[in-house]
Amino acid sequence: MESFSVIKKTLVLICASFCVTALSLSASYAEQKKKLDSNEVITEYGKIATGLALEERCLLLSPAETKEYYWHQYLLDFSLSKIFSGSPVLTMVRGTAQQTSRNERFKCDQESRDFIHRSLQKARDLNLELTGKTFELNVSDRAFDEQRLAIIATAAGTNSVCAHLLPEYEEQLRVGYEALNGAMKMRYPGNPDTSHIDASYTEAANQEKTSCGKQTNQQVLQGWQLTRLLMQQFRLAFATKNP
């Protein structure tokens, strides 16, 4: 409980500088229920982000719980980024969460496990409050992963034409895409069909070189960044090269 108290004090200071008095979520699920106090939302979001950062350090959750946590975090990031558009508050909160998760008081023990589980429950509660959505194992997470893999496939196909990335990063994108696509078939029951993801790669790889420019460069960079993120979330690693 002491950990939550320290986090709350830090986040209230951040929110005092950037948050509005209340969140008015136009045309959203939350508005239909009630108006949410921004200090409360940011405090809860900070605890959720800290719990996930601690889980990435300690790896204490089950695979199913980890999938669920990433799904909630994504939806919360998406929803709150629209609410706090133009404000650095979410970036600041995530930075604070990373620092807090590395605090020596977290020993990756039962206390840390309990902290992570409480944070996951907060993610469930806040996500339901903001979006009205709940997690369904092997359905919600599969759709989420397929959506992100399609982005990576498009980026890899585009880079094969436009060659925006340096060789080292090009290899990470290409190898990462292949590894993640293969992992999908083992990650979910029933050997899921990933042909539509492959089709995204093929379509991008068949575009004309004249289409290459700022937009494709940004697309490729985002795909490369997402590849590195998913490799971590899928608990995969790039091969270490000998010097």
Rank of each mutant, 00 (worst) to 15 (best):
S3K: 06
S3V: 01
F4T: 12
S5V: 14
V6H: 11
V6L: 12
K8C: 08
K9P: 04
K9L: 12
L13K: 14
S17G: 08
F18Y: 14
C19G: 00
C19T: 06
V20T: 15
T21I: 08
S24E: 08
L25D: 08
L25G: 06
S26P: 03
S28K: 00
Y29D: 07
K33M: 11
K34A: 09
D37F: 04
S38Q: 07
S38F: 02
E40I: 09
E40H: 02
V41R: 00
V41P: 04
I42V: 12
T43Q: 10
T43K: 01
G46N: 09
G46E: 08
K47F: 07
I48A: 00
A49W: 05
T50L: 01
L52W: 01
A53T: 04
L54E: 03
E55N: 13
R57I: 06
C58F: 07
C58T: 07
L60W: 00
S62Q: 03
E65A: 15
K67C: 13
Y69H: 02
W71Q: 03
Q73S: 08
Y74R: 10
Y74F: 12
L75W: 13
L76T: 01
L76C: 01
D77K: 11
I83Y: 12
I83L: 14
F84P: 03
S85W: 15
P88T: 11
P88W: 02
T91W: 06
V93A: 10
R94I: 12
A97L: 05
Q99N: 13
Q99M: 12
T100R: 15
S101P: 03
R102P: 02
E104C: 13
R105L: 07
K107I: 09
C108L: 04
S112V: 05
S112G: 00
R113N: 10
D114I: 15
F115D: 07
R118K: 14
Q121E: 15
K122T: 03
N127P: 01
L128P: 08
E129C: 10
L130T: 02
T134S: 12
E136R: 11
L137P: 08
N138F: 10
S140C: 03
D141E: 08
R142S: 09
E146G: 04
A153K: 04
T154E: 13
T158G: 15
S160C: 08
C162V: 07
C162W: 04
H164D: 13
H164V: 11
H164T: 15
L165W: 11
L165S: 04
L180T: 01
A183G: 03
M184L: 12
M184R: 00
K185V: 15
K185D: 01
M186R: 14
M186G: 14
M186P: 05
M186V: 10
P189I: 06
N191L: 11
P192E: 01
D193I: 07
D193S: 03
T194L: 03
I197T: 05
S200M: 07
T202E: 10
E203M: 05
E203D: 06
A204G: 01
N206S: 14
K209E: 07
G213P: 01
T216C: 01
T216L: 00
N217L: 10
Q218I: 09
Q219I: 02
V220M: 00
L221T: 10
G223A: 02
Q225T: 14
Q225Y: 02
L226V: 07
L226P: 02
T227N: 00
R228E: 10
F234I: 06
R235V: 09
L236S: 05
L236T: 01
A237Q: 10
A239C: 09
T240Y: 12
N242V: 14
N242W: 15
P243F: 11
